[in-house]
Amino acid sequence: MGARSLHHRGAFRILGLLAMCTAASAVQPTKPLEEVRALERSGDPDLETSLSAVVDNALRAFDAPVNFEGHPDYGRSTARTVAELPFAVKHSVRKNQSLAHCLDELMELSRGLLEVQNILGNTCIVPKKSDKDEILNNLDVPVSLHLENVSTWEALKALGIEINTVDATDYSFLISLACFDEGNSPPEAFTEEKVISLSLDDVTARYALCTIMNASPLELSYTYVCGTKLQVATDKLIISVHENGKRVLGNRSLTPEEWEWWRREKHEVGWERER
């Protein structure tokens, strides 16, 4: 189940040529995971549910941007429209529990499917690879990106276009924003502040994404949702904005014109293509 064609290249260089980013490509100062604590109990310890659901619940309980990628083995199905799960789990976040301790519990519940990586200071829960060159999802795809004085959205859009151009997986790549679920607009800085400049060659899309997030004037996190072949065979990257660690979903409704504009922008990423 979940067989994926591997279009991986031979040995590609990660960290080959890294040029400047105007905002610091250095690690953004973040609170140690042991010091980030849940202020309330969250989740039902007796409820059996999917690993994705408990991870999502856990990450909402902490005021910290943590990135999460669903594993392709349980994120897709060729037989059903709903993601098939290899197993169900029970988990709740306890009051005063540290994020580090919670992540340890989640990795144990994943039975080796997931691992936690620190990429340029960003905490990322990613599918565990058996081979370092393995491409499990579109964020493993090697990309090159050269940008100058662009906004956060422009940088992300460029990354999305690059991923879809390289076309290294069976699944196209779509970018969306968490605030759209509430019908809200992202902060103005997301599209207006053109402060990102970077030059990256032959790095993973994940590395490029973390570089963009560090360079952005906003505090961001992402969730990577694996699509299904019965639908449009599209993986979705959902970007969330945080303020002081807390996820915010915006407070200004999008106008119909703005909705249309965003629809066109997302379309330009190139996710709607023939498969």
Binding site: R94, K95, N96, Q97, S98, H101
Partner: peptide, 13 residues
């Protein structure tokens, strides 16, 4: 340990 600390807090609550 963190587990022991969490249990201690839960008992007090």
């Amino acid at each position: 340990s963190e587990d022991e600390q969490l249990v201690m807090l839960e008992e007090a609550e």
